[in-house]
Nucleic acid binder design. Structure first.
Lengths: 194, 194
DNA sequence: TGTTTTTATTGATCTATATCAAGAGGTACG
DNA sequence: CGTACCTCTTGATATAGATCAATAAAAACA
């Protein structure tokens, strides 16, 4: 059931069988149907989740009620609001399922237990967060410096599989443009190709 | 000389005297004059730097030769291109000093030695990077969903001291707008106050 | 299978911000 | 001390992308 997750860990650090067992024992399995929430704004995000199957989105709702997608999470990614999770304060984000989804959840106490019992777990998460941070910084640069078409092309090239699975208007939201604009951009690009 | 840095570390993890000594022994002290570079695009970023004094900026240069500021780093922040540093690949960013600056540098081999000898160092950097990641995600949301004036106000409120030290056109670049626009936004705001 | 909901497209118009151009203080420096 | 060069401001105009509105196709659903 957790083969992928254990492999994901073992690509970064080496766990012996005992350690693997401890880790697994701390996980909870959860299924979400489409549109179900992993967590909501105003609630403490109690879990970090490893996506076993499916796809989720993390988004913020602004005062006018518009959704702004912070990220998509598919198989073999961790999902959750890190800030809310670690500080146990109310989250500013919603996380919901775009597809039927299965997760391996870990709560804060368990995560801290892991850090204590198996210090190299710090390394595992340090590496993951470091990569996420690097990617986030690149997205900042894109967002502040590049026109919509270029941002779309970057997304298209970096996440070709995501683009298949996810409705266009969600991608538009991730890119910071309206669905109408993305539709026009795609049209222009496909005209230009021929 | 490194009191602030040691305090910075000790607020996150506990080091004994021996460990502190090892850490300090791996640091190199560097001074930069205004406009000098810590690293440049195309070069491997050999060091992570802890800012002892001064202020730096990390920026990207686009094809048209425009600078886009990714971040400012003042006292008690770490600076450098994490991706280039850890992968030892050429950086896409420039890092230079906006003021006369002093840094405590650590190279990759030393950092890895620290991780090996004092595993809790993983924790120290995991916590720092986690906080940086959280902040970066918030900036993404701002950049893709909020108008320039609001982004400026957020910056103004979050980094009031930075705004004093840094030329306005650098802040404009950080916000993803032109210096002209920032000038007009500030004018409007100051008119509205009275 | 018919009905509702979601998703994508297209057109007309509007607006926030960019661009281009000029000038004016400040500050650094030869 | 004067000359260069940063830095900021202001005005005129241009434009990328938003908004509003309508339609239609596709998917979900009962």
């Amino acid at each position: 059931m957790y083969e992928n997750l254990l492999q994901h860990v073992s690509r970064r650090i080496n766990l012996d069988k005992e350690e693997e067992k401890l880790f697994i024992s701390l996980l909870q399995h959860q299924k979400l149907r489409k549109k179900q929430f992993l967590c909501k704004e105003g609630e403490v995000c109690k879990y970090s989740g490893y996506v076993l199957k499916g796809c989720l989105r993390t988004y913020e709702l602004d005062e006018q009620g518009n959704e702004h997608v912070l990220q998509f999470s598919i198989e073999d990614w961790w999902v959750g609001d890190l800030y809310s999770f670690f500080t146990e304060t109310p989250s500013r984000y919603y996380v919901d399922a775009l597809e039927p989804t299965e997760l391996a959840l870990i709560d804060l106490a368990s995560q801290e237990l892991m850090y204590e019992k198996i210090p190299k777990f710090e390394r595992y998460f340090r590496i993951l967060i470091q990569n996420a941070f690097i990617a986030s910084q690149r997205r900042v640069i894109s967002a502040i410096s590049k026109p919509a078409e270029e941002r779309y092309l970057e997304f298209h090239q970096r996440y070709p599989t995501l683009e298949q699975r996810i409705p266009q208007h969600q991608i538009a939201s991730y890119l910071g443009i309206t669905p109408e604009s993305l539709s026009r951009i795609r049209k222009q690009l496909s005209n230009r190709k021929y």
